[in-house]
């Protein structure tokens, strides 16, 4: 079963994403900050991580960059959740190594279809 890591400091959004992903048949690990996300990513080795950009402590971009820098987690698929639509944030996400990004407020339906598209692309 494909494991997906979801990191967001807002519990409601975390639950929303987790609910939708589990419904789509994925196993979800939910964490509420960057540090936990990093630890879970290293210990559980999920296939994909959904990271909120603005989190207290380590931001999503920091986590993304660290995952990419670590040999063990460098190949992980990463989707960023960003509240800002400004180009520089998006660029920051991509330069940190994210595979895709979704701006808040997002549609859970759209998020799931993006995740599935990424997964199918890597499997193929």
């Amino acid at each position: 079963m494909t494991v997906v890591l979801v990191a967001d400091d807002d519990a409601d959004i975390r639950d929303l994403v987790a609910f939708k992903l589990e419904q789509a048949g994925l196993e979800v690990i939910s964490v509420e900050d960057g540090q936990a996300a990093l630890e879970q990513a290293r210990s559980r080795q999920p296939t994909l991580a959904v990271l909120d950009v603005s989190m207290p402590g380590l931001s999503g971009i920091d986590v993304c960059r660290m995952l990419r820098a670590d040999q063990a987690t460098a190949g992980m698929l990463i989707i960023m959740l960003t509240a800002r639509v400004q180009e520089q944030d998006v660029e920051g996400g991509f330069s940190a190594g994210a595979d895709d990004y979704v701006t808040k407020p997002f549609s859970p339906r759209e998020l799931v279809s993006r995740i599935q598209a990424l997964l199918s692309r890597t499997r193929a």
């Binding site: 807002d10 409601d12 929303l16 939708k20 407020p105 549609s107």
Partner: peptide
């Protein structure tokens, strides 16, 4: 404002 809005919109969609 966007964070709560995301939750509202997301749950309504669900």
């Amino acid at each position: 404002l966007r964070t709560p809005l995301t939750s509202i919109a997301g749950y309504v969609e669900l």
